[in-house]
Design a binder for these strands. Structure first.
Lengths: 215, 215, 215, 215
DNA sequence: CATGAATGAGCTTTCATTCAT
DNA sequence: GATGAATGAAAGCTCATTCAT
C-alpha cells in the first residue's frame, strides 16, 4: 500500500504519477517496468518515489487497485440487482462493461491481461488467484438460479462453464482489440457482444431452425 | 536463425543446449531469461553461445521452431486428411493433439502460452501474428466445408468463430492444467475435450431435449 | 551539541528520542545507524530531528554523553576518595563499576565498545583519544602513590601499565559477556573481577607458594 | 570463494585488485567499503568485478584469506615445535610474530582488528568465532603442559587465561601502534613484547625481590 | 517549534553482448 | 570452432540532509 506521503500529495501530482506508472506497466509489464523511467517521466526524484511507495510491487498493486476502481465504475446497475434479470441479460451486461472499460482505458486493460495470463510471477499469480476466486463466487449462484429457471442446460459441468465464461470475457476483449484498431471509426462494441452471447448460448452447431423460433 | 556453427555441433551437445534453453525460457519467459544461466547450465562458454546464435532472440526463435516440430509430431493423421471427416471430429482431434502435447511437454507448452498472451514484446508479437495467420488458414476452408455440409450454423460470423476456435484450444489447455495438478492420477484429457466440444457445439442454453435426441 | 530546541523538549519526549537513538547506535553502530529508523521509531518528523540535532554525529555525541552520565552513577564512592584505599581495592571498585554498568545497560556498553575499538571513523577516534587521556589522568597519580606505598612493583613501565589497566577493564567486560549469556542465572560479576585482579596482581607464573601465603 | 575468472587473472592484475580491496576494507571496514571505489581504484569495470567475485562478502573473505596467508609466513619455526620450548618462550614468539606482521602490514592488521572487535556484522562474527576456537585449540594443550612442567600457576582458571592471552596479543599490538607512529625511527617491537611478557608472568604487584632472583 | 515532502548521490548487483586469443 | 575476460548501462533501492510551510 502506498505510504501516506503519496496519499497526501496534491491530487494533480498523484494523478500524474499514477498515469505515468500505469503507462509504464502497460507498456513493459511488471518485470520489465523501470522505476527509473517512471521517475523521469513523472519528473520526480528517485528518492521521492520511494517516499511514496515501498517498492516496485507496491506501486504495481496500487495501480491495479486504481484500475479496479476505474473498472468498477463501469459495472452496470443491472449487475447489482441480478435477481431481476435473466442470466443472459446479466452476462451481456457484464461483457458490455468489460468491453466498454477496455475501449476507454486500453492501457489499464493491458494490465488486467498481464495478470490473467501470467505464467512466471508470484505477485501476479496472487492477483490472478484472487481474481479467479471472485469470478467463481460471482458466477456460481447466478448459474444455479439460471438452471432452476430453465435458462441454462442443467447438464453442464459447472466449474468448466464458469471457467469458460471468464475466459469468454477475455476472448471478447481480445477479439474487439484485434479487429478495432485504436481510433477506428467502427469501434462499436455491441456486435462483438452479440456474437459472443450467441456463441455461448447456442454454440456453432447447425440448428433445425423451425424448432427454435425464438432467439 | 542459429549460425552454421550450431547446426554443425554434435547432436548431443546441440540437444543439451536446446533443452537447457527451453527450460530457461519456460521458467522465466523471454525477457527474464538469462543467457548467463543458459551457458552455465549447458556448460558452454559465453563466447561459444554467441558463436551459435546471433543473440537472445535468435535462440528463442530456434527453440520456438523446435517446439513447433515437437508439436507437429502430435498432429493426428486424421487432421492430414480433413476431407474424410466431419468438422467436429477434426476439431476434437485438433484439441486432443494440443492437450496431449501439453501433457507430455508442459515446458514447451508454456512457451506457446507466452507467445499467445504476449502484450509487450515485439518479437513475440511477430510470432503471435504468424500463428494467428496459420490458424486462420487452417480453419477457413474447414468451416466453409462444414457449413456446406450442414454441420455448422451458416449464420455464424466466420472471423469471430475462427478467433473463438483458436481461443478455445488455449482455454481447454488452461482448464486442464488448472484442474489436473502435475502428477495427478486423474490426468485424462478426454473429459476436458468432450466438455469443450459440447460447449462449442451447443452452447449452454437450455434445450428442448425431445427435439435433439442425438448428442 | 543538541540544539536548544531539543533541550527544551518535555522530558518524556527527550528521553524517548534518546532511548531510541541509543538502541539504534547499539544495534547498528555509528556508520550504519539510520536516521530514518530513529525518527520512525521515535514517532517524530524527520524535520524535527534536524531541529534538535545538527546531524548524525550530533545525536551520537549526545548519546555518548548520556551514556557517560549513566556510567558516572555507577562510580563507587570508594573511587571518589582514592586516598583512603589501597590500589587494588580501587582497581576492584573500578572494574566492578564497569561490569555492573554493562550488566544493567548492555546497549550503552556496546556503544562504549565501538568507540574503544574504532579503526576507521574520525569522530569516534576523537572520543577514543579523549577517553584515553582521561583514563591516563585517572591512573597516573594512583600508580605513583601505589608505588610509593609499595603496592606496585616500582620497575613497571607506567605508560604501558596504564594502557594495560584500561585494556583489562574492557577485557573483563568481554569475558563476562562471552561467558554469561543474556538472562543467564549465573550472572554474578564477582568471579570475573577476582580472576582479573589476581591476573593483574600476580600474573600466571608459577609461584613458590610458601613464600606468598596471602592471596 | 573468488571465481576461476579471478584466479586465472595475470598475477599482476590479481595483486592489484587484492591490494586495492585490502586498502578499501582497511580504511572503511566491511560495511562501508565501496565496490564502486574498489573498481575505480583498480581501473576495472564494475561488471568485471562481479566476474571475479560473487559479491562483497566474497572479496572480503578472499582478502581475509590472503591476510591469513601473509600472517602465516610470520609464524616462527619455534611455534611449530612447541614441545621443545618452555611456555613463555612460545608466548614471546607468538606475540613477536603478531607484532612483526602488524609492523610490516598495518592495513592487513586493521582487518584483523575489525573481525576481533566486531559487534554487529554476522559475517564478521563467523570469522571471529572461528578465530576464537582456533585460538583456544592452540593454547589449551600448551597450558596443560606448562602447568605440568611447573611453568604456570596450576590454580589459574584456564578459560579465563586463554581469553586473556588472546586479548593480550591484541593489546600488545594496540600499544605498539599507539606509541610508534608510522615511520617512527624507534619502531622496535621487542620492548613491547618484554613489557607484555613480564606483565603476564608476574603481574604488577610489588615483589619481595630476594625470593625471585631470576627474571 | 513541527512538519514531511523533496532531493540526488550513492549503494550492490545483473545483464546481453563483444572481442582478442 | 572454442574460450572467457571485459564492458558499462541499467536495475531496484537507501541514505542523510534541506527547506518551504
Amino acid at each position: 500500500m502506498p505510504k501516506d506521503t503519496f496519499l497526501n500529495l496534491p491530487e494533480e501530482k498523484r494523478r500524474l504519477i499514477e498515469e505515468v506508472s500505469l503507462d509504464e506497466f502497460a507498456e513493459f509489464g511488471f518485470n520489465n517496468a523501470s522505476i527509473n523511467r517512471i521517475v523521469t517521466a513523472a519528473g520526480i526524484a528517485k528518492g521521492s518515489f520511494y517516499q511514496y511507495f515501498e517498492d516496485k510491487a507496491d506501486v504495481f498493486m496500487h495501480i491495479v487497485a486504481v484500475v479496479g476502481q476505474k473498472k468498477a465504475e463501469y459495472i452496470s446497475p443491472v449487475l447489482l440487482n441480478p435477481e431481476d434479470h435473466d442470466f443472459f441479460t446479466l452476462l451481456e451486461e457484464l461483457y458490455r462493461s468489460g468491453l466498454a472499460f477496455t475501449k476507454d482505458h486500453p492501457k489499464a486493460s493491458k494490465i488486467g491481461f498481464e495478470i490473467f495470463n501470467n505464467q512466471t510471477n508470484l505477485l501476479l499469480d496472487d492477483l490472478f488467484q484472487e481474481n479467479r476466486r471472485s469470478g467463481y463466487a460471482f458466477f456460481n449462484p447466478l448459474i444455479d438460479k439460471a438452471i432452476a429457471r430453465g435458462e441454462i442446460d442443467p447438464d453442464i459441468d459447472k466449474p468448466f462453464i464458469i471457467h469458460m465464461l471468464l475466459e469468454m470475457q477475455v476472448a471478447s476483449i481480445k477479439f474487439f482489440l484485434q479487429n478495432n484498431e485504436k481510433g477506428s471509426l467502427d469501434d462499436d462494441i455491441m456486435p462483438t457482444i452479440h456474437l459472443m452471447l450467441n456463441f455461448i448460448k447456442n454454440g456453432i452447431h447447425a440448428k433445425n431452425k423451425e424448432n427454435h423460433p425464438n432467439d
